[in-house]
Simulated scan of single mutants.
Amino acid sequence: MSDTHVSTLQLGATRSFAGLMELYENNYIYLRRLVPDLDRSQDAATSKVTGAVDLHMEVLDRHAYTTSLRLTHRFSHADEPEVTPNLMLRVYHDARVAEVLPESWLRGFRYWSFRELPPVGALAWRWEVNRFLNRWLRYCLGEGHAFAIDWAAQPALRPQARRWAG
């Protein structure tokens, strides 16, 4: 990824559909740095970094062209653990994009609880939550998080699994 893309996104590029697609592409790049091979990843894994909060990943489903997963931090408190941001993501392998699923908001994603957001699924909503994902993925990578791959494991079975060259 070139610095031009990061700068464009950091400056709050035009919140157009084309700009959103660029954001999805950047999210995919960062997510693949965090989880280098989703086909070989465990269905549940934890990334532990000294001095940082553990990052948890759970694969929710695997299909021929998509993988859905949940990423979250779990903070320990005296009463009960806090799971936040608790994002559900969908990775589109053929298009090489990743996005936050609306279910993340519906399941209690509380980052924006102090202000109003556009209706779930609207372009403006997708911009807000995916820009948050972009920054959070960069933060997690900066902390040193990554999910190790078991190279001896067989790739996850996908119906008519796809991998196009290039």
Rank of each mutant, 00 (worst) to 15 (best):
A98C: 14
P85R: 06
R33P: 00
V129T: 11
A95Y: 08
R32E: 02
G108R: 07
L141Y: 10
G51V: 00
F132L: 13
A156H: 08
R32M: 09
R126F: 03
E82C: 03
L117I: 06
L137C: 07
A52Q: 07
Y28L: 02
L55C: 03
L20A: 05
Y92F: 15
M21A: 12
L137E: 11
Q10T: 08
P85S: 07
S16G: 12
S47V: 04
Y92N: 15
A95I: 07
V35C: 00
L141S: 10
F147V: 02
L60Y: 06
K48V: 15
T72A: 06
I29C: 09
V97E: 03
W136E: 12
R74G: 02
F109V: 02
A98D: 04
E128T: 08
A122M: 07
R138V: 09
L87P: 05
P102L: 08
S104F: 02
A98T: 15
G12L: 08
A78V: 13
L137Y: 07
E25W: 01
A64F: 02
L133Y: 06
F147A: 00
L157W: 12
L157H: 10
E80H: 09
F147R: 00
R40M: 09
F17H: 09
G12E: 06
R138P: 07
R90T: 14
V120Y: 05
F17L: 08
Q42P: 00
V35S: 01
R158W: 01
T50V: 04
R110W: 09
R135L: 15
